[in-house]
Design a protein around this nucleic acid. Structure first.
Length: 652
RNA sequence: GCCGGUAUAGCUCAGUUGGUAGAGCACCUGAUUUGUAAUCAGGGGGUCGGGGGUUCGAGUCCCUCUGCCGGCACCA
């Protein structure tokens, strides 16, 4: 006999070896019908597993949130079976559930195309309809390798071989088809349901290694109900409307063109957002003890060799010959036989040069050296993405030169600055990651231990929840990464904070310590926004183009109803402009409906409508973006209101 | 860089089995003086991404380059 405990505190006895299926059936037929899996002491299990003595058992129904992951995972299996049924020469590799859905990576001579997706979906529906039970078998390693080898599944063989000796080889069958899988699964393929859709095909490297085979990945989304699926698809459609590339064009903020891939042409309106952000962050840095500098774009490659960038980063650098080109014969210049210079891909070596001018004392530290540094990186072309990933970028960069003892305080100080800025920007949903030592790195383990601990300590002290990114640190030190998501949920790193014990050494930066000896400063690389480009992209998507008033390129439009109000409107605009408010006049011969519509679609926060009545009474009819109706106020009140709302958050 | 897709007017898109390009919006002109999300009429605008090929004939088929889109890899 075994005793089983239930979440409500009840207990019940069953014969030893009783499965979850039997337990739930004995409790309630209707519950059994809805149940697709169980949790044993909090861990998801197949319903067909025997229940251990004394276990706490909870049943998971198909429409529980916890089942969603299984629906997706099972859908991946069903898709893999469908694909192999349609194209038997296809090899399966791995297929996990992911946020909102699942994927499966296949290996095939000719990759899948979008057209294949509908065929696969049909076949999947068939397999779901068949409703074969998922059954688990535990195989021996040799057996598993033999079987998959015989099937020609070389990728699976590699996976099996990589499973540690002490772990079982689980095989899940669904009818004739089977797959290596950790599990758990639901009862039958029928539990997958019909609320799924294959969304895209993509190439993906086997084991994420760009030196290995390219697999054909099929992505799908799956939900508990058709309703949820439709809701999700609609939501994605809506989200795509927030795409900064689309809004950037619609609101005339910036453009990109073929002749300058990855470099942004900022239009007046887009650059106004930039200017406001730059002014804001500059004041924040001034207040936080930073000094601002400006350093060269083009620097001799000798410095890059010394800094180590030439060796590690050269592929990403734009290299320029340091010669006057001859119109007749520029061949040798292109081949780079003369002296070479490079556009800076980062500002750090230049800042070290400023640090090194003269002699620095421990009394001078910390030095917080900021630069809105324009950098160029020759990114892989497939990586370019609107404002989010560009080749010419401007960072709100700074380097803090300090002593080892000052690192923790500086980190806390930075975290406070970061939190204040993102709070001011109205950005929430920031993911904090602590990226730790990579395999290839400089410095000894003791230094890494200390550095990683100091970052973790500062995060804890600041009460910030974070996750680790093992092995993702820079080669010279650990990093804090600050991630935000775009409209459709892709994650982008914006801010960064990095400890560096290497560069000061390579570039021979020293300060005079208390005892008169020469010591190496620690260098902290940090950026709050990250780059203006990406940050503005994130802001556009976060606000769907409806920027806060202080950031809006045009804060208000004064729109006339009749030409009799023109003079009054002109005076109003002049008064607003005198307060440095960004306003425009719309005195076109158009209906007010037309003007309101146009300025609303242009996401102008406020429309000041003036007609005959307002001109006579000295008032303004104020219409706020996103609100119905309007408010009548005196011109002076309207001006004061806009002036108040236009104050940047740090000056309030 | 890799895999798949894609490129027609400023934007969004049509363009049948190859027979020398269309719509809506935008723009320009004229009329309309209008009360809170599109007034009416007329007009201009495209060597169909670049190059090469097949063909009597290519926006349509093939090759190639480039950009862009979705992933992967790389990264702020």
């Amino acid at each position: 006999m075994i005793t089983v405990r239930f979440p409500d505190g009840a207990t019940r006895d069953f014969a030893a070896g009783t499965t979850g299926t039997t337990v739930v059936e004995q409790i309630s037929k209707s519950l059994a019908k809805a149940t697709v899996a169980m949790k044993i002491d909090g861990v998801m299990k197949d319903l067909s597993e025997p229940v251990p003595d004394g276990a706490l058992i909870a049943f998971v129904k198909r429409d529980d949130d916890e089942a969603l992951d299984m629906i997706r995972h099972d859908a991946a299996h069903v898709m893999a079976e469908a694909v192999q049924e349609l194209w038997p020469d296809t090899q399966v590799t791995i297929g996990p559930s992911i946020e909102n859905g699942f994927y499966y990576d296949f290996y095939r001579k000719t990759p899948f195309s979008e057209d294949d997706l509908r065929r696969i979906e049909k076949k999947m529906a068939e397999i779901v309809q068949r409703g074969c039970a998922f059954t688990k078998e535990v195989w021996t390693r040799d057996e598993a390798i033999k079987v998959f080898k015989a099937k020609g599944e070389t990728f699976k063989v590699e996976l099996i071989s990589a499973i540690p000796e002490d772990q079982p080889i689980n095989i899940y069958k669904q009818g004739q088809w089977f797959d290596l899988c950790r599990g758990p699964h639901m009862r039958t393929t029928k539990d997958v349901g019909t609320a799924f859709k294959l969304t895209k095909v993509a190439g993906a490297y086997w084991r994420g290694d760009s030196n290995r085979e390219v697999l054909s990945r099929i992505y799908g989304t799956a939900w508990a109900s058709k309703d949820d699926l439709d809701k999700y698809l609609t939501m994605m459609e809506e989200a795509e409307k927030r795409d900064h590339r689309k809004i950037g064009r619609e609101l005339d903020l910036f453009h990109l063109q073929d002749e300058a891939p990855g470099s942004v042409f900022w239009h007046p309106k887009g650059y106004m957002i930039w200017r406001q952000l730059e002014g804001y962050i500059r004041r924040r840095l001034d207040d936080d003890g930073y000094v601002e500098v400006k350093t060269p774009q083009l620097i001799d490659n000798k410095l890059w060799e010394q800094s180590g960038h030439w060796g590690k980063f050269r592929e990403n650098m734009f290299v320029v010959p340091d010669e006057v080109p001859s119109t007749e014969d520029d061949e040798h210049i292109i081949t780079g036989e003369g002296n070479l210079m490079a556009l800076k891909p980062m500002n750090c070596p230049a800042h070290v040069q400023i640090f090194k001018q003269g002699i620095k004392s421990y009394r001078d530290l910390p030095i917080r050296m900021a630069e809105f540094g324009c950098c160029h990186r020759n990114e892989a072309h497939g990586a370019l993405h609107g404002l989010m990933r560009v080749r010419q970028m401007t960072q709100d960069d700074a380097h803090i030169f300090c002593t080892d003892e000052q690192v923790t305080d500086e980190t806390k100080r930075f975290l406070a600055l970061f939190a204040r800025v993102y709070g001011d920007m109205g950005l929430t949903n920031i993911k904090y990651k602590l990226a730790t030592r990579p395999e290839i790195r400089a410095g000894d383990d003791a230094t890494w231990d200390r550095a990683e601990k100091s970052l973790a300590d500062a995060l804890h002290a600041s009460g910030i929840e974070f996750e680790y990114s093992p092995g993702e640190g820079a080669f010279y030190g650990p990093k804090l990464e600050f991630h935000l998501t775009d409209a459709i949920g892709r994650s982008w790193q914006c801010g960064t904070y990095q400890l560096d014990y290497v560069l000061p050494d390579r570039l021979d930066a020293t300060y005079v310590a208390e005892d008169g000896s020469r010591k190496r400063p620690v260098m902290l690389h940090r950026a709050v926004f990250g780059t203006f480009e990406r940050f503005i992209g994130i802001m556009i998507e976060n606000y769907a183009g409806r920027m806060p008033v202080w950031l809006s390129p045009v804060q208000a439009v004064v729109a006339t109803i009749v030409s009799d109000a023109d003079a009054y409107a002109e005076k109003l605009v002049a008064d607003l402009k005198a307060k440095r408010l960004r306003v425009e006049l719309d005195a076109r011969n158009e209906k007010i409906n037309y003007k309101v519509r146009e300025h609303s679609t242009q996401k102008i926060p406020l429309i000041f409508v003036v007609g005959k009545r307002e001109a006579e009474e000295g008032t303004v009819s104020v219409r706020r973006l996103g609100e119905d109706g309007q408010k009548i106020m005196t011109a002076a009140e309207a001006i004061a209101m806009l002036a108040e709302e236009s104050i940047p958050p740090d000056l309030r």
